[in-house]
Design a protein around this nucleic acid. Structure first.
Lengths: 378, 378
DNA sequence: TTGTAAGCGTTATCAA
DNA sequence: TTGATAACGCTTACAA
């Protein structure tokens, strides 16, 4: 017959009693830490099995002061970027015996603050966070000097002096933009998200403390600057950080009297939204417009044309963050490290050389988009 | 100056001492449960603030027997289907004061077993699981009669008699197939994943205990049967549950001497993989082939042509599961309920009527696929 | 090797 | 309203 129909799980005490050994002895065998004679050990294990004993890890955590749980705060698990990151984290954490508590912050500093405190109160052994705001991190330094290990993901906050795992977004954006410039484009637009509330920066120093989008924007501007191209503010679009946001900004770009000949987007959401807008307007890529996206998601291969994108090692971002965190938890000392993972440009079919490559921006006025003919719309 | 540079968090005892009140009194104010005079209350709160007191939720859980944590086991958080589900769960759980521990099972029953036990040992208040195997659920019933609330997601296991939140995959597949049949298709293929190890079922009773993919396959077959169409086993493809798997099966389909005129896929991974294969072969959809996918993901709108798909309420699947679970946790009684959420067909441009609609299957031999011309390949 | 006893930081009970 | 004191289930000295 099954042990108990419901309720009351067996405890070490119960097992000890059933095996008629001392409490601590049972605890030692079950917890696997002291030493016990094989004979007794067998008795205890048998009793445990018949009672269906399962250890209470909460109690264990209370006693040991370690919960074997990691806290992870990302903007939105629905964003494939973060989903893949979380997978990377999880794949490293589990084999090491750590579980993951996941929280979405929606890029809201306040949600993050609450989440992070809650996680700390739940006694997680460490926290990985993609910080929502780079200028609002009191809650993070609070954690830090409470002694809780914390690893920043995707966005660094130098003032925190915490471990961080990021990509070089500045350089990535620069490379992509360079490529468009090399193809002869002079009116290059960028669709980025409003998380970069910074005004268009006129200087291009490696940004000290600015969000992901801001860094990529800076890289874009730097490339233009290096090429001696003036920045047309009309071509710098801050979208709300949604597909719809990018959609409408990309649309607005094409409505300009002098639309861009190339568009660069700064993350996968922007890429999707902008691309959809171009599709709906039946703008031919790359004939009418060159397009450079961000994030090498599966779908970028199967659209028409396949998109050239900046590929970042998303999974590794998560895995590395987890490894870093586990290292700290196991007591690795040393000052905080910022790990910068490499990106690369993936060239597919969405950009092309434009003919008049020499500073004739004025004459590149685009003709109104003709109604498309390729796609069998339904 | 900041309280402590590191280590040792303040406890209720510390606060009590600092406020010079009894320990229990401090505990009551801080825990917000007993009654305390406003005056004392103020003193305690002040002391707590200056000491930077943060409750230890683990200790609280020990005492109360409730951890305010939910366990969630899905196949793979990278799959957008599960990512959206988890978002739905999280959005319901958090406002209710519950955190979520996330585990990936990769559809492996054994991973799931380990995960589920670990979660139980961590004293989660309930578990939501998309069970990997419908015939291997000992670990789940084990939980059940330990009294831990459990909600099945996406896949029901009738023998368990647990709450479940699913869609009617049978009907969904049937509808999609019906639609293809109505368009005159007679050689209709299906690309599904190998999780349905069931042989091609010859009977179409509402499947008692079969995985998601199997149910959808049954719906497909049922539709064919109702239309009096014979099943060509060559057109029933079990792919490994990856993009690559679907890719190669779809490719194989088109290599048949008598390829299908329509393809139906049974989840978003199959859809992506199959579609990519068709793209790469430059098969024109819907001119050369009609295509019906599964899951209304964003990218299905922006491919060429936009895909007709079975849309399921993914977010709601998660949200409903969480609501159901919370209900049980709060003690709602009553027998297990299976909630079936509605699906719907989204018609876009990937299917079309075929001319010879009347049982002339034999004459529908397709001509070899001509090299495509539309896409500016790079 | 075994057992006793003292925590871990809460909540819950019960007098005062 | 207060304040001891006993759980909660485990680990960790410390003795025996």
């Amino acid at each position: 017959m099954p042990t108990h129909p419901k309720k009351k799980a067996a405890t070490v005490r119960d097992v000890a009693k059933a095996a008629s050994v001392g409490f601590a002895t049972a605890a030692r065998t079950l917890g696997g830490y002291g030493s016990v004679s094989p004979e007794v050990r067998g008795r205890v294990l048998l009793a445990a099995a018949t009672l269906g004993y399962r250890p209470n890890r909460l109690a264990r955590s209370m006693a040991t002061g370690t919960s074997r749980t990691l806290g992870v705060v990302v903007a939105d698990i629905e964003n494939q970027f973060f989903a893949r990151i979380v997978r990377g984290i999880s794949d490293v954490a589990r084999p090491a015996g750590f579980e993951v508590i996941l929280v979405n912050s929606d890029e809201k500093a306040n949600e993050e603050r609450v989440a992070v405190r809650m996680l700390a109160e739940k006694q997680v052994d460490g926290i990985i966070v993609a910080p929502a705001a780079v200028n609002d991190f009191g809650h993070l330094s609070e954690l830090q000097d409470s002694g809780l290990p914390i690893v920043l993901l995707d966005r660094n906050i130098p003032q925190l002096a915490a471990d961080a795992v990021v990509i070089d977004g500045m350089n990535a954006a620069e490379e992509a933009t360079d490529h468009l410039i090399a193809l002869g484009h002079r009116r290059i637009a960028i669709v980025t998200d409003v998380l970069s509330e910074t005004p268009i920066p006129r200087d291009f120093r490696p940004p000290a403390s600015v969000a992901t989008a801001g860094i990529r924007l800076a890289g874009f501007l730097k490339a233009l600057h290096r090429a001696g191209l003036a920045v047309d503010e009309l071509l710098v679009r801050r979208a709300s950080p949604t597909i719809a946001g990018a959609y409408s900004e990309a649309g607005a770009l094409m409505d300009l009297t002098s639309p861009p000949t190339a568009i660069f987007t700064t993350d996968n959401v922007m890429t999707l939204g902008a691309f959809e807008a171009l599709q709906d307007r039946e703008i031919r890529i790359p004939q009418d417009l060159s397009f450079f996206g961000f994030d090498d998601l599966d779908w970028t291969r199967i659209v028409h044309p396949p998109l050239s994108v900046v590929a970042q090692p998303v999974y590794e971002l998560g895995a590395t963050a987890a490894q870093t965190l586990l290292g700290r938890i196991e007591g690795r000392a040393g000052s905080a490290q910022v790990r910068v993972l490499p990106t690369q440009l993936v060239h597919r079919g969405s950009t092309r050389q434009v003919s008049n490559g020499h500073r004739r921006a004025k004459s590149i006025n685009r003709v109104p988009v003709p109604p498309g003919e390729i796609r069998p719309q339904t």
